[in-house]
Design a protein around this nucleic acid. Structure first.
Length: 479
DNA sequence: AAAAAAC
């Protein structure tokens, strides 16, 4: 894992002055040498400095902040941990539920031999077990922003003693419109604290956010995606739009169904493809935001256990998820954002292993492919699908009647209907979304658009015109 | 043209 960059081979975790309990946990997992970002970040964080880290998943990012957090909390243990009280002293915020769970698993593993306790809170699940965990006392909380605020409002958690704050995948949190939630959370924290922010990109918005709430930060950069791309062999296959599913099935059969993630641009598309592959006799499942949280976790779990060979996913899985040693990623659709291509193919070729990134595209996607190639500054080889005969898929449900049937089947299969998911959030959090990220969102504000302001919020607060992220950032507390 | 996230 330490071959990505110019980390001196002789650096070891044991050199950082970490507590023996932490080193033991690392030894348990077979970690001896830090990755480049760990080698850079750990000493700086141990000094108590704020850090702005530019790093992709798979670089060992989680350990780079978890280990110093644990070390620092242990070092100051006697001061605030004396009686039975376990105030929350470190808070990690993540954009998606799966990422939060994954970070929490890592933190728990590193804490294993220490008296520190941690827990994770995120939406889509019963509040009660989370409440019980919070009330029993934990030093480290990993959370998605919305559910965390929910717990704050219900007084299940107090953030008044937080000494360290981590914002993981900060760029994604901005993209997803979490800025107002982040502001509210930060307002609940003590002014004096250590801040860490991780982001895959350095957009102006991210820089602004960093300058708003990091104090004199040290910036750490680790070689970007090209490092990954070198180990990932990419190829694109052009097929007729109607034959994309056949093409995926064909590729999967050829590869004898080793573990593969297939990315779809839409939730419906993901469900449909997964179902189609199952009828083709493959062990496949879909993971996306319309699945219940239980289904999402189960799909991920059975994929990790190897009970499922093909995980068909939306971009809920494009970033952050650390599914190790994936030999292959397939793009059933080319992503609308070229950035997302990099994140998707970053799921393979990890930790020194090589990987294959296969993309299917059709005539109408030429533009998307051009955008991707411009971003990654290379041409992706055009391949030919050997022996591919379209038409293998049993049913083609492109016509109205059947498609409605399928949607109904989706629902009965446990997916939540759209009205349950409508973003009926308080007006404060119904802020602008994904500005700058996608041209689609740069279109002028149209009050009639359904996603403008939720109806439930409009009674209390009149619909606000789209604000600039910069304006919102201007209101952030300094330091 | 999409996806994600609190009840």
């Amino acid at each position: 894992m330490s071959d990505i960059e110019n980390t001196p081979e002789q650096v070891r975790f044991a050199d950082f002055g970490l507590a023996p309990e932490i080193l033991r946990a690392l030894t348990d997992q077979g970690y001896v040498h830090p990755t480049p970002i760990q080698a850079k970040a750990i000493p700086i964080l141990l000094q108590g400095r704020d850090v702005m880290g530019a790093a992709q998943t798979g670089t060992g990012k989680t350990a780079s902040f978890s280990l110093p957090i644990i070390q620092l909390l242990l070092a100051h243990a006697s001061a605030s941990m004396s009686p039975a009280r376990h105030p929350v002293r470190a808070l990690v915020l993540a954009p998606t539920r799966e990422l939060a769970v994954q970070v929490a698993e890592n933190v728990a593993a590193y804490c294993k031999h220490t008296p520190l306790r941690s827990t994770v809170v995120f939406g889509g699940m019963d509040m009660k077990p989370q409440t019980a965990a919070l009330r029993s006392g934990v030093e480290i909380v990993i959370a998605t922003p919305g559910r965390l605020l929910d717990h704050v409002e219900q007084k299940n958690i107090s953030l008044g003693q937080v000494q360290m704050l981590v914002m993981d995948e900060a760029d994604r949190m901005l993209d997803m419109g979490f800025l107002p939630d982040l502001q509210r959370i930060i307002n609940l924290l003590p002014k004096k604290r250590q801040n860490l922010m991780f982001s895959a990109t350095f957009s102006p918005e991210i820089k602004k956010l960093a300058s708003s709430f990091l104090t004199d930060p040290i910036t750490i950069e680790v070689a970007r995606s090209n490092a990954t791309a070198e180990k990932v062999s990419q190829v694109v296959y052009k097929v007729n739009e109607d034959h994309k599913r056949d093409a995926v099935a064909h590729i999967l059969r050829q590869r004898e169904m080793k573990q593969v993630i297939v990315f779809s641009n839409t939730k419906i598309g993901a469900s449909r493809l997964a179902r189609g592959l199952v009828t083709e006799g493959m062990k496949a499942a879909a993971i996306h935001g319309d699945k219940t949280q239980q289904e999402r976790m189960q799909a991920l779990d059975s994929f990790k256990k190897g009970e499922i060979d093909v995980l068909v996913a939306t971009d809920v899985a494009a970033r952050g998820l650390d599914i190790s040693d994936l030999p292959c990623v397939i793009n059933f659709d080319l992503p609308y954002n070229a950035e997302d291509y990099v994140h998707r193919i970053g799921r393979t070729g990890r930790a020194g292993a090589s990987g294959d990134a296969i993309s299917i595209y059709s005539d109408k996607d030429e533009r998307l492919l051009a955008d991707i190639e411009k971003l990654i500054k290379q041409t992706v080889p055009r391949g030919t699908l050997e022996g591919f005969v379209p038409g293998g898929f049993r049913s083609d449900e492109r016509h109205g009647e059947r498609r409605r049937d399928r949607t109904a089947a989706d629902r009965s299969a446990g997916e939540r209907p759209a009205f349950e998911r409508s973003s009926a959030r308080p007006s404060g959090s119904a802020g602008p979304r994904r500005e700058k990220v996608d041209p689609w969102f740069l279109k002028p504000y149209e009050p009639t658009r359904s996603n403008a302001t939720p109806a439930t919020a409009s009674a209390a607060t009149p619909a606000k015109p789209k604000q600039k992220i910069a304006a919102l950032l201007g209101g952030l507390p300094k330091g």
